[in-house]
Amino acid sequence: MQALALFDLDDTLVDRGKAFNAWAEEFVAAHGLDEKALTFLVVTDAGHSGPMNDYFATVRETFDLAERPGQLWERYRGRMPELASCRSEDLDALGRLRRAGWRIGIVTNGMTDNQLTKIRNTGLDALVDTWCISDEVGIRKPDPEIFRLAARRCGASPEGGGWMVGDSLDLDIAGGRAAGLRTIWLPPKHRPEPSSRPAAAPDFTVGSVAEAVGVILAAT
């Protein structure tokens, strides 16, 4: 198996939950809302998937805000990348993986400006070889072609195997497996697990990126 490791960004490499909670606290303070509003923002986000326009339409209606949903979303999109962070132990683990000769890529759904700012602000750009952002490449997970494209950008053969690490059973695990990769699942901490049976089961389940890197290095 070739030395290729691909990683999801939000809630895998980047602690999105921590960033979102910080944003929600700022939002509540800025709009003069209370603790119940903070809980509503966090819980509603946990049950939401996909673009955030519907989320902010709900927020505007619930709190009777003057701003349009698009305005709320635009401010959110500008602030969230500034709040993004990675766990130091995960960054150290990526460094170990790279020093061991592995090619590393990021595969993420999202808008190019947001995701690229997160990658650069957290220092991930210095630790990975490439990234594929769905908005940039016109392909969204779980389409296996986005994983194949990331492999090619790493100078690897899509058919040569490798690993995909992520928090979504449907997007990361099923998509990675369809592309011919072994998979490692990080169960999401801020979202409920899917109630339906996933399309594919992971090869391994771990609690952090650092643990996932340990699995990858031990399996070679």
Rank of each mutant, 00 (worst) to 15 (best):
R16H: 12
A201H: 11
L72P: 03
A37E: 03
G138H: 03
L97N: 02
K118C: 02
L4W: 00
M1T: 14
L41D: 05
D54A: 12
F20A: 07
T62N: 04
Q115W: 02
V42S: 12
D143H: 13
K36E: 14
R68A: 15
H190M: 08
S168I: 00
P198M: 02
G162A: 08
G160L: 02
S49E: 15
E26Y: 02
T183H: 07
D113V: 04
I216T: 09
L65W: 02
L94E: 04
N121V: 10
K36C: 08
D129Q: 05
W131L: 04
R120D: 09
R79L: 12
H190G: 04
T62Q: 11
D11A: 05
D90R: 06
G78K: 07
D135P: 00
A174I: 06
A200E: 07
V215K: 13
I133N: 05
G155S: 07
F7G: 05
G32K: 14
G180P: 03
R98L: 12
G166M: 03
P142T: 09
I173R: 08
W102E: 02
V43D: 15
S195L: 14
I216Q: 08
E74M: 11
A212E: 02
S195A: 15
R140L: 14
H48C: 03
L97G: 05
S195C: 09
I139E: 07
D34H: 13
S196E: 15
R153V: 05
G95H: 01
P81K: 00
G95W: 03
A156P: 01
R191Y: 01
M80E: 15
A30E: 15
T205F: 10
R75F: 08
S134T: 04
A200C: 06
L97H: 05
F27W: 06
H31C: 06
T108G: 12
R68S: 15
W185H: 10
T122Q: 11
A93D: 07
A29E: 13
C132E: 09
W102L: 04
R99T: 12
A37K: 08
L38M: 08
P81A: 04
A24I: 11
F7M: 08
V206G: 11
L91G: 02
V59Q: 01
R120F: 01
G176K: 03
G162M: 05
A210P: 08
D143W: 05
A22D: 11
L65M: 09
R79G: 06
G123F: 04
L9R: 02
G161T: 14
A150Q: 12
N53E: 15
D45G: 01
